[in-house]
Design a binder for these strands. Structure first.
Length: 471
DNA sequence: TTTTGAGTTGTTCGA
DNA sequence: GTCGAACAACTCAAA
């Protein structure tokens, strides 16, 4: 085969890239292509921060390719049209791409495969959705048995991680658009795009003096700590392969020096399996992207109060942890996982707003926003999904704050008007006596909002709403 | 086919 | 302050 197209979608890396490796095996020269698809670009789900991260990732990938005698060709338009014309321009014999299991991608790829020689490689996940199924070949809908089966499949070995190719021979004459520059990453977003950064973060998480992976199980819950890997945006765009992450997790488990350390590393591996679980759920049940998995919970009488929704979005609910979470999201494009659960629970249960509103807001603001994981997380919190939280499990934002941000470091960082509030009141500032409000420079109702709902009453309200919906 | 055990992440109440 | 039970059944997965 003379020329092959490597169609890049969410695998912005050269290391352990199976689509690229297959193309290199089969063809003498490779044309790396990214198609800016207006259907995704203009979608209500797209967010400027994620798009900026993607464009930055394309620039980084282009630089990495140029160091290997290649370059990235960027086109804009419907992928089908652009690929067809590229194929004509280069007389490419095949188009290699990493399979994407989300509903839009499957529809798009199905149509393209009907006309063009598209070869899809399953490497979005360690184990493709079709391989982690029950003995009767039907999909799992509960996490624990899914993960048990996942773990019985042969783990990827260290040498299965494909090396970075030294050279990528590429035809020189194919014109490319410039990578759009108008959307640059806002300065508050702490995620430099590119696979070099992803590799750095992975090794820092695994191999530093005191590897965070061996403290992950507890540390990850503290919102003011740096206990998570912060790899989600990189996994989202394939700047790091799931397989390489899993290999790293397995090797950390194998070299753990205590039961405790081992358990912590296993907890992180479990998070990778959660990612694959929700990818599998969306693959087998594409309808979840539009409605609740559980048919009996599709008619909850949501209040959907617009003013309250806006207060939530902007981080002005009067509940410090919730507001810190929402402001972190807005400023950085990322939110701590524990904070995601608290903020999501507050929207759905305390405000009784349709979980899909929150799902959309997260997609519009998260750099790591992924249709499968985000949908799964929201349905879990709302208690309407697979393997969902029981509906009576309502997070108490004050207790969650006291437990997972005891000194209020997280709150003070993202809600500066509470900076000088004593720790005793940091998660319930409305309890401050007037003199303490004055002393801390934070008058409730003036410098910081009065809570927009009373949690105890809101809890009763949501419990009865869910009870009614079910009966 | 039937049975049995189990199910990410919580809160509240009363002893 | 700490502890166990209740919250509500229900469905899934596997024996």
């Amino acid at each position: 085969m003379k020329t092959a197209v490597w169609w890049i979608r969410r695998d912005l890396r050269l290391t352990d890239n199976q689509a690229l490796a297959s193309a290199l095996e089969q063809a003498e020269s490779i044309l790396p292509v990214f198609v800016l698809d207006p259907a995704l670009w203009n979608s209500r789900r797209a967010g400027p921060k994620r798009l900026a991260f993607l464009l930055g990732g394309l620039r980084a990938l282009d630089a990495d390719l140029r160091a290997r005698g290649s370059r990235l060709v960027v086109r804009q338009g419907r992928p089908r049209d652009e690929l067809a014309s590229l194929q004509a321009e280069t007389s490419a014999d095949a188009i290699y791409a990493e399979e994407d299991d989300s509903p839009y991608a499957r529809r798009r790829d199905g149509q393209i495969a009907a006309d063009l020689p598209l070869r899809l490689i399953s490497s979005l996940t360690v184990h493709p959705p079709m391989t982690v199924v029950k003995p009767d070949r039907t999909p799992y809908t509960v996490f624990t048995p899914f993960s048990r089966t996942w773990k019985t499949l042969s783990p990827p070995s260290l040498n299965s991680v494909l090396p970075t190719p030294a050279r990528v021979p590429t035809p020189t004459s194919v014109p490319s658009l410039a990578i759009p520059m108008e959307l640059s990453l806002p300065s508050g977003v702490p995620f430099p795009p590119g696979e070099a950064e992803a590799q750095c973060r992975l090794s820092r998480f695994m191999d530093s003096d005191r590897p965070a992976i061996y403290h992950y199980a507890d540390a990850r819950n503290h919102m003011g700590w740096d206990g998570t890997s912060q790899l989600s945006p990189y996994l989202r765009f394939g700047m790091l392969s799931a397989r390489q992450a899993a290999v790293a997790a397995y090797s950390a488990i194998a070299s753990a020096t205590s039961m405790e350390a081992r358990k912590n590393a296993e907890t992180w591996l479990n998070e990778l399996i959660w990612r694959e679980f929700y990818i599998s759920i969306l693959y087998h049940f594409p309808g979840v992207s539009r409605q609740a998995f559980r048919a009996d919970l599709r008619d909850i009488p949501w209040r959907n109060d617009l003013q309250e929704f806006e207060a939530w979005c902007e981080g002005n609910t009067g509940y410090p942890v919730v507001d810190a979470a929402m402001r972190q999201l807005k400023q950085t494009g990322w939110m701590h996982n524990r904070a995601r659960m608290i903020a999501a629970s507050f929207l759905v249960k305390d405000l009784l707003i349709d979980w899909r509103w929150g799902e959309r807001w997260f997609m519009q603001n998260l750099v790591d926003g992924d249709p499968a994981a985000n949908n799964g997380g929201w349905q879990w919190t709302a208690g309407v999904g697979t393997d969902a939280a029981p509906y009576f499990r309502v997070f108490n934002p004050v207790l969650q704050g006291q437990r997972f941000d005891p000194a209020g470091a997280y709150v003070r960082r993202w809600v500066p008007e509470l900076e000088n509030v004593p720790s005793k009141f940091i998660h319930q500032p409305w309890e401050m006596p007037a003199d303490v409000q004055h002393a801390s420079g934070c008058i409730i109702g003036q410098d910081y909002p009065t809570p927009i709902v009373n949690h105890v009453e809101a809890r009763e309200r949501v419990l009865s709403a869910y009870r009614r919906a079910q009966s």
